[in-house]
Design a protein around this nucleic acid. Structure first.
Length: 256
DNA sequence: ATGGCGCGCGCAGCGCGA
């Protein structure tokens, strides 16, 4: 079973890339972020025609998350229970006995912004909810755009990013708090190339110069760690015309 | 590397992302 996460930065624009990528990788479950699509305009038919089911929750212009899956999506839940949030950033569903949680964690904009405080509050709420969710679901995967580079090795130039969002210590503490729930950063279960990134700025030729960050992650509960045989960042879609600024991250799990 | 790109909205140019 292959499970993946991909911030598509507008599903309307990236739908051809998504369909090509599904066909090429034969991924079984893909969590999407930044669909930027209202539910009424979601391209459900095109995804179903490719042999997938899809659950989604979106809004106009901003945010929006979806889970694409070959197998049925059960117990679909949007948002963090008990955490009032207009922004569509969370979608959970059970697929083949695995609780799949798709997240688009807030960016935070800058350390002195109200959006940064929102990011930290949001992460607190996520952590509290996941603690319960893990107790109910020992097979849990948390996939998404975290907007956090966990360590300096996940940043092309750590010195240049000091004092910025994505790398600040409170954010990294929140990331470690997720690990503290028993989750593992699946990418780091395996030997990986140096300078492994999942996002590059569109500006200043960021991709060509490899000025990237690793901010898209797959966290796995212990039961799923034992089943995980590979994790890779697939840079191929970032090389296409009109790419998303993020690449997919893909994990392979053995069957039970 | 933050003026510089790309997106949505909506028809100009702005807000936002990371």
């Amino acid at each position: 079973m292959k499970i993946a996460t991909w911030n598509v930065n507008s599903l309307k624009v990236r739908l051809p890339h998504l369909l090509d990528w599904l066909a090429a990788t034969q991924a079984d479950v893909v969590c999407l972020q930044e669909t930027k699509t209202e539910d009424a305009k979601f391209p459900r038919e095109a995804i179903e025609a490719a042999g997938y089911q899809v659950a989604y929750v979106g809004q106009k212009t901003y945010n929006g998350v979806a889970i694409v899956s070959r197998l049925p999506l059960l117990d679909v839940q949007a948002g963090i229970p008990g955490f009032a949030d207009e922004q569509k950033r969370v979608l959970a569903a059970t697929v083949d006995g695995i609780r799949v949680v798709c997240v688009y964690i807030p960016n935070g904009q800058s350390l002195d912004s109200d959006k940064y405080l929102y990011k930290l509050r949001w992460l607190n709420a996520l952590n509290a909810w996941l603690k319960d969710e893990l107790a109910r679901n020992p097979r849990l995967a948390l996939l998404g755009d975290y907007n956090i580079a966990p360590e300096d090795r996940d940043v092309h130039d750590p010195a240049a990013w000091v004092g910025n969002v994505l790398v600040s210590e409170p954010e990294r503490e929140q990331f470690r708090a997720l690990l503290g729930l028993g989750l593992a950063d699946a990418f780091r279960l395996f030997e990986q190339p140096e300078k492994s990134f999942s996002w590059w700025d569109y500006r200043a030729a960021g991709f060509r110069r490899d000025l990237g960050m690793r901010i898209d992650h797959i966290l796995l509960s212990p039961e799923l760690v034992t089943r995980c045989t590979a994790v890779e960042i697939d840079k191929a879609p970032r090389k296409l015309e009109r790419p998303s600024d993020h690449t997919p991250v893909l994990a392979t799990l053995t069957s039970l």
